[in-house]
């Protein structure tokens, strides 16, 4: 194992952080690269889920079990605190997603589109119209 180009033990204990970074960046890419507002929200949700996975993975103990206490005195439990914080974050996340989707519905009612570049073009038109009136 020592002759390998990389330290396998190091990779095995860090690869999961890298997985979540890759997922997070996929979500970020979807959010910044596409103009459709609904798709942006899906991208944000992917980003958010990657953060949750990263956070929960810090509390994991290899060989441990879920923190539901048993009578076995030798049992090792994973850390319950990250789980609690992420439970709260998931519920807050769905609340903000609902708010964002409601905003998308209102934007569609006002501008007739949910594409970012079309909304910006309409905004410029409206600004120009107001400027002419003044």
């Amino acid at each position: 194992m020592e002759e390998l180009l990389f330290d396998l033990g190091f990779v095995l204990t860090h690869y999961n952080y890298w997985m979540f970074v890759v997922l997070m960046m996929t979500g970020l890419y979807i959010t910044v690269s596409y103009g459709n507002l609904v798709k942006k929200i899906v991208g944000l949700n992917i980003f958010q889920t990657a953060v949750f996975l990263f956070y929960v993975s810090t509390g994991k103990i290899v060989g441990g079990t879920a923190p539901i206490l048993t009578d076995d005195p030798a049992a090792v439990y994973s850390n319950p605190l990250p789980h609690v914080l992420i439970l709260t974050a998931i519920v807050v996340g769905i609340a903000t997603t609902a708010l964002a989707l409601a905003l998308v519905v209102r934007i569609r009612e006002t501008y007739g589109t949910v594409e970012e570049d079309e909304i910006i073009a309409l905004e410029h038109e409206m600004d120009a119209a107001i400027g002419v009136e003044r």
């Binding site: 929960v56 509390g59 079990t65 439970l87």
Partner: peptide
């Protein structure tokens, strides 16, 4: 993935909410 990380409650919530 949450189940493999021992977070059963989070997995339930993610499946129901997400």
């Amino acid at each position: 993935l949450f189940v493999t990380l021992d977070a059963m409650d989070v997995a339930f919530t993610e499946a129901a909410v997400g």
